[in-house]
Design a protein around this nucleic acid. Sequence first.
RNA 1: GGCGUGGUAGCUCAGCUGGUCAGAGCGCAGGAUUCAUAAUCCUGAGGUCGGGAGUUCAAGCCUCCCCCACGCUACCA
Length: 707
Amino acid sequence: MNKEKKYLVTSALPYANGALHLGHLAGAYLPADIFVRYLRQTGRDVVFVCGSDEHGAAITMRAKKEGVSPQEIIDKYHALNKDTFQRLGISFDYYHRTSAPLHFETAQEFFLQLYRKGGEFEERTSEQYFDEEYQQFLADRYITGTCPRCGHTEAYGDQCEKCGSALSPTELIDPVSTLSGAKPVLRPTKHWYFKLDKHAGWLREWIEKGLLDGKQHHDPRLWKKHVVGQCLSWLDVEGGLQPRAITRDLDWGIPVPLDEAAGKVLYVWFDAPIGYISSTKQWAIDNGRDWEEYWKGDQVELVHFIGKDNIVFHCIVFPAMLKAHGDFALPVNVPANQFLNFEGQKFSKSKGWGIEQHEYLEAFRDFPNCEDALRYALIRIMPENRDSDFRWDDFVEYHDKELADNLGNFVNRVVVLTNKYFDGQVPAVDAFPAELAQVRDLIDQLCREIESYNFRAALQLLMDVSSFGNTYLQEVSPWQLWKEDPDHPEVRKCLYSCVQIVALLAALTEPFIPFTAAKIRKLVGWTDAADARLGDLLDRLANDQAPLAAGHRIGEPELLFAKINDRKDQSRLAIVESQKAKLQAILEAEKQSEHEPVKPTIQFDDFTKLDIRTGTILEAEKIPKAKKLLKLTVDLGFERRTIVSGIAEFFEPEGIVGKKVIVLANLAPRSLKGVESQGMILMAENEKGELAFVAPPDGWSDGFAVR
RNA sequence: GGCGUGGUAGCUCAGCUGGUCAGAGCGCAGGAUUCAUAAUCCUGAGGUCGGGAGUUCAAGCCUCCCCCACGCUACCA
């Protein structure tokens, strides 16, 4: 890596309508922090920015639901997230927010640049729901209605939370405005679309080969396979990239800076990534620097740390925006992580499954060095290339076995021995020990891993350094030699080397577990963080110079980690156990109540509108290219019907021929996968989503009513 | 169904462009040791590298087919 480079590192902007959980931390914030701390330590010019993403309908919805203003929502979560990151040691140079005037300006300028340049946008007018009472167009989320798929009566305009279907507002049956409660009407409205499709060509070359304008921009082999794979699958998707709307009819957001666009704001996905730019600008203003050095020119190394849900925006949409704008550098890497699960299940706020960052800090308040305990465990299982799972038992194991027994114990035994044998002073030796050269090799490997975004491997090498120290110490066993001769040269040499290794660990731990790094610095008698700069220490090692001079006085012994499984003190184990108990309680509660609430009361007349009949399945076959659909021929006694049913995941076609069924016979026909379905088979569904036939007894006649 | 990513010792996982790649950690079983937080160190375990076929002098690593898990996507009238 080149020291002339200007590194600009970003972590995904958290959406300011909620707290973040451990999965977010492991996915986008910890890896970025490791990378940035390492770059700083090796003398690179780096700026690390982030901030709150504070626009979009989800925030206004939440505000409305809680009866507060959107401003109160974003203020609350901006402060919470910012504070929590700081407490966890995530070392942003600037944590901005997209509600700041500077960001408005930046985003509007960006929009205007593309607008004036021409060729990047197109205008489209479409029919969208409008609330006449409130005189405004309704965002998807502001419309509820009955889901056309599952019949859920409170589906949103963009998706049904019951069956998970992605919807568009016009699909909803009986749509209702959540503002007025009235039925919205369709009205034409104009929006601006970013012509993503015209960028597909160079994007492919850039992602596949790392080429940009014919020049090598980055090494595509350093990009994660799943990142490249997902991008290419988007470029390959049927019809290719499509123009994307970048404006919305909403009153919460950044106004579109055109006279003809009153009442319209920039769509949140357009405005949010520009937040990286405005965050850098604010940092530059506060520090008397030039933000453009980090965004423009050949020396810029832009790296986006995100979760895999954001790959498309950061690898396709935002790069296309930057390229279209013209002045900006494109990311050299987007090391997206996969997802972290929690004790075998997805994090779920509604179920209470998982733990949020600030909850952890609260629950582990009395746990010494709890920040690093968490950072270590999360790095250890970081979902770099596949989904991974956080388990409290692993957390305990990593903390006790690796941090306390391996690292903490090594540091402690060296500090104790040095104090005991040499009055706390680094002993003198004749020559640079070969052991330190071996450690230097490990450190070199560690650096390479970090620079390749392999943080788990780097962490393993950190532990290897400590293990090397333990093994070496054990081999020499200076305590035995010392008993025979306190002046034995091997004793001096051994402890000299070990103290130097501890000093190196003070530097090596800094990117991963910075709170511990500070403690180790104190143990080796360093008062200034600058003493433990890895870059300087590596320069010294390269010249066969050790970090600490003979005669240097180190500190008094002090434990770095208090084990969780401690015979004398159960308090830390109790904290972990209470977390496990909490999860157990959720599982229990789940078993108890798995029943959805009863729908609103209807009249008998409503029921009599349904024509439900008995029937028999005569034929069944799978519909090609559909996972769930079976095409059934059903005998209703008086006629035969073709019915498409989404039961293929649970029933083999041959297994259900002859089966008695109950059919909703007067349902309007609808075509599915090219087959017209003339009715619906009634099925019972349990809490796992499994289906079972509801049917009259075998032998019952077909075509008779169910009432 | 389409696309993507994975399926390696009991568990968690490393294995880059094919030839010490059959490995590490944990667990387990022996042994050594006492400076240290019941810590440390040494030794052992013999897993058809999801299944099958193929390419090659040589294949976890390349090709094809199949199975399984996860994600995205279409579809449960």
